Simulated assay, not measured.
Amino acid sequence: MTTPDPAHGAPPPPPLYGAGAPPAAGYPAPSSPPTGWGAPPTGAAASTASRRGLAFTAVVLGALPLVFGMLQPLVLVGVIRAGGYELYTAFGWVLNVLTLVLGIAALACGIAARRDAPLLAGTGIGLGAAATVGAVTGFLFTLTAYV
């Protein structure tokens, strides 16, 4: 059996997925694609991309206090060996303030980006919250030494 050749008067094949075909009985013909389908507006695409970048920034800001925490003992051992106890206290306070600022910044960036990049934003929020709580706890622990 041979396949009919369209050039010799065979009917064209039916359209795929109803393109150009009349609607099925009982259903209205669609006038346009449903809302939410199609290309996003240019402003929304730019906003989504910038918020994904904001989520990545939240992760980086939240991870920096971890890096400082790993380097802090190495630096403080050198300071103690040199006998600079005043420098030890000042360095601890500066690092704690920096951790608090970075943690709050990671929280803010993560919260702002949580809808467009939930995984990265959630990671940034978690790291920021941990850094913030750690810094506040460090301040409270230091204050108990003066009471």
Rank of each mutant, 00 (worst) to 15 (best):
T57Q: 05
A130D: 02
Y146F: 13
A105H: 02
L120N: 04
A129D: 05
G126M: 02
L64A: 12
P118S: 00
A39S: 07
L140H: 06
P12W: 11
P15E: 09
G38N: 07
T3S: 13
P4G: 00
I104C: 12
G124L: 04
G134K: 01
L61H: 08
P22G: 10
L119V: 15
G62P: 06
C109K: 02
L95F: 09
V67C: 02
G103H: 00
L140V: 15
A24I: 11
A63S: 05
L76H: 11
V101H: 01
F91A: 15
G92Y: 02
T35R: 03
A129W: 09
T35M: 00
R114M: 04
G84A: 14
S31V: 14
P73Q: 01
F68E: 03
A44V: 09
T132R: 01
G69V: 14
P23K: 14
E86S: 13
V94H: 04
G78Q: 14
A108R: 15
F141R: 02
F68R: 04
G53M: 03
A19C: 11
L127T: 07
I80Q: 11
L100C: 02
A145W: 11
T142A: 13
V67G: 06
A145K: 05
V94M: 00
P14W: 09
G26P: 09
S32A: 15
A7Q: 09
P11E: 07
A135I: 06
T132Y: 03
T48S: 07
L127D: 00
G43T: 10
V77I: 10
G62S: 05
G20I: 01
L120G: 00
G62Y: 03
V77T: 13
V60Y: 03
T137E: 08
L16I: 11
P4N: 00
V97C: 09
P30Q: 04
L66W: 13
V101E: 00
G83T: 10
L87Y: 11
V97Y: 12
G126I: 01
P28I: 05
S50I: 15
G134T: 04
P12C: 03
T2S: 12
T57D: 00
A44Y: 05
G84Q: 14
T3D: 14
L87H: 06
G110S: 00
T89N: 10
G126V: 06
G18H: 08
A46F: 10
R52C: 12
P11W: 11
G69E: 15
A131V: 09
A130S: 08
T123K: 01
M1S: 11
A106Y: 05
P28Y: 10
R81S: 12
G78L: 10
L100E: 01
V79K: 00
L64T: 12
A112K: 03
T48K: 08
G62D: 05
I80F: 14
Y17I: 06
Y88Q: 08
L107Y: 08
Y27K: 07
P33Y: 14
A25Q: 12
V97M: 09
L76S: 07
L54Q: 12
V94G: 02
T57C: 01
G9H: 07
R81C: 07
L61F: 13
Q72D: 08
A24L: 15
P11L: 13
G18M: 10
G110L: 03
G36K: 05
L64I: 15
L64N: 01
A129C: 06
T3W: 13
G69A: 15
G53E: 01
